[in-house]
Design a protein around this nucleic acid. Structure first.
Lengths: 344, 344
DNA sequence: TTGAAAGCGCTAACAA
DNA sequence: TTGTTAGCGCTTTCAA
């Protein structure tokens, strides 16, 4: 690979001049020089060494994606194959690339490791999925550059500590779940289950919405309405089997993701319970696969790809020193009625 | 961020010594020094500047994934959300990370741009998906380091030009398709369609297998058996609709991916054609979503994640200078009978 | 067993 | 308008 210095000596000028025309700092360079340099540059197909550049400029052109996996979750399948993540990633990748940045993935269940790697690469900004409040604080303590959180619920205290170079993109989870369950109730369901794999983060908000809808309708909430999926590779099949049995006690189940809905429908069908004739199943997210599913999924739609694009483009704005107007951007989901929920 | 030099002066020794203990070049360092350095290192939580290191060592610790998109294809949805890609990526990411490398994504329909970016980052090795023969040559001409191809059919000539630091991981596509279609024939089908979105690469081999099976059974191959999907965002819905109509002329359709099978089943059902009662649909890949699909997909299974893991680990071996025994590794698919194909 | 010094390729302040 | 020089943080050769 040819270097600036070599080019300079070849052309009989200094490296500075070459560097200047490369960067378009061309106000103080004569037109002929510019021409000569440019011609030579693409004659030899010059490609800069980005490591050297980064070292000199003390940045990296890298935007990091941090996916902190939880030991207990995300193990039944690889996290990049989660349709929600994959779809968002696609939007992010495109946005980041268009803006001239590169993407690096930091996936681990060890936040300290992630923090070190981010530091080692001198990453310019971070996109963080599903961070817990305490992890958000922890990472801010050691990473001072721009960050965009996706689906993180932060306490007031955390928000104070975030400074001003961050944004948090979320969804009206509580309301979305409330609307979803209200729809189920309108369809005549009285025994309604709630399925998730956790009771933290987004799931806890969705549970609150579920609860509110049931209370408002004066419907009771029983233990047997709580469907909790064990998503570990070893446990998932057994767990699903148990949930299918549990499904007999209920006429509808609200699931916190389309994925879970798909899993649940399969489990029910295997168990001889037809959807929606015997039991109604409702999803959340309206992801790409959900849209292909049979029966077509009734679900709460959110624009996943847009969420990623918005997070990435806002992050890039912050990196470019644009002041951020709103630190908390809350998107709205909307009901999509298809065929997995029956009126009874 | 603290630097080696600062640490050295703090400890009253030279940067060399500090660097040496960091790298475990500890044969010529006194135990006390080692101890002292290590203690200080984690007292201050030293993190190396990887840009500086890369510059000095002339490598990058980066493994690049190149996904060359085709203008005509891969547009109906973002390529990272393609379940095949996503699943493979998961396996790759884990393997790469465990080996201490980092992943960078290079996605573009412009191969020259990809080549420049790979050069700019001084990437240590490349993982390439679905390269066409001519692109493989082109990239080898400008990238001399280790490469692992996935699902590329190379000509003899190309193989010669590849040198010895490469591997190509493929699948018995022709045979897989042959087996699949043979199964369809065994089920009594005589009018069998072939659905794909292209006739190049892997698809062309699968078509050959399809053809062979039909010829062997003395079944005719008609134009109307050819289902070609227009995967552009604008065209896909119309295309699907047309294909659903076309499906009436056939009793079974062999699709070159589970994805297409899912799309096709949806189109057929919307059109009033039930699967498998009215028409049988067979997939290929057995991907994660296919496994959740209803009706459960009869398909040719391949171990997607393993393919990614194998490609990544072989690539890393090559980077580590291990000699490669086999440049062409061809995996075998296997038939999975589920419920989307009927006997007639 | 340790250290001095040069160099990786690039940028940027400053001088000419 | 162009060039000199120092420096980014690290590794590595060679000398001490």
């Amino acid at each position: 690979m040819i270097t600036i210095k070599e080019i300079a000596s070849e052309l009989g000028m200094s490296a500075t001049t070459v560097s200047n025309v490369i960067h378009g700092k061309t106000k103080e360079v004569s037109p002929e020089t510019i021409e000569r340099v440019n011609a030579y540059l693409d004659e030899v197909d010059y490609v800069p060494n980005i490591n050297a550049r980064n070292l000199a400029q003390n940045h990296s052109n890298i935007i990091g994606i941090v996916l902190k996996t939880e030991e207990e979750r995300h193990t039944y399948m690889n996290i990049l194959a989660d349709p929600f993540v994959a779809e968002m990633l696609g939007g992010i990748e495109r946005t980041v690339r268009k803006a001239g940045f590169f993407l690096m993935l930091y996936i681990s269940d060890d936040l300290d490791e992630i923090i070190r790697q981010v530091a080692t690469w001198n990453v310019d900004g971070l996109l963080l999925f599903w961070m817990m409040d305490e992890d958000a604080i922890k990472i801010r303590k050691r990473f001072k550059k721009p960050m965009a959180f996706i689906d993180t619920y932060m306490s007031e205290e955390t928000i104070k500590k975030m400074g001003h170079r961050y944004v948090n993109i979320g969804l009206k989870d509580e309301e979305g779940a409330y609307e979803a369950v209200k729809y189920l109730i309108e369809c005549g369901h009285k025994k309604i289950g709630f399925m998730s794999d956790s009771d933290i983060g987004v799931d806890s908000r969705r549970y609150m919405g579920y609860e509110r809808a049931l209370k408002e309708a004066k419907l009771s909430i029983k233990d047997e309405y709580r469907f909790v999926l064990n998503t570990t590779t070893e446990g998932i099949d057994k767990s699903l089997e148990a949930l299918a049995k549990q499904a007999e006690k209920v006429t509808a189940i609200f699931c916190t993701s389309d994925n879970f809905a798909a899993l649940m429908i399969n489990a029910c069908e295997r168990h001889g319970l037809h959807v929606p004739e015997d039991v109604s199943i409702m999803g959340f997210d309206d992801n790409l696969n959900g849209r292909l599913f049979r029966p077509p999924l009734t679900t709460m739609h959110q624009d996943i790809e847009y969420k990623g694009v918005l997070a990435a483009s806002t992050l890039i704005d912050i990196i470019h020193e644009k002041p951020v107007e709103k630190h908390e951007i809350i998107l709205e989901p909307s009901l999509v009625v298809r065929e997995s929920v029956a009126r009874i």
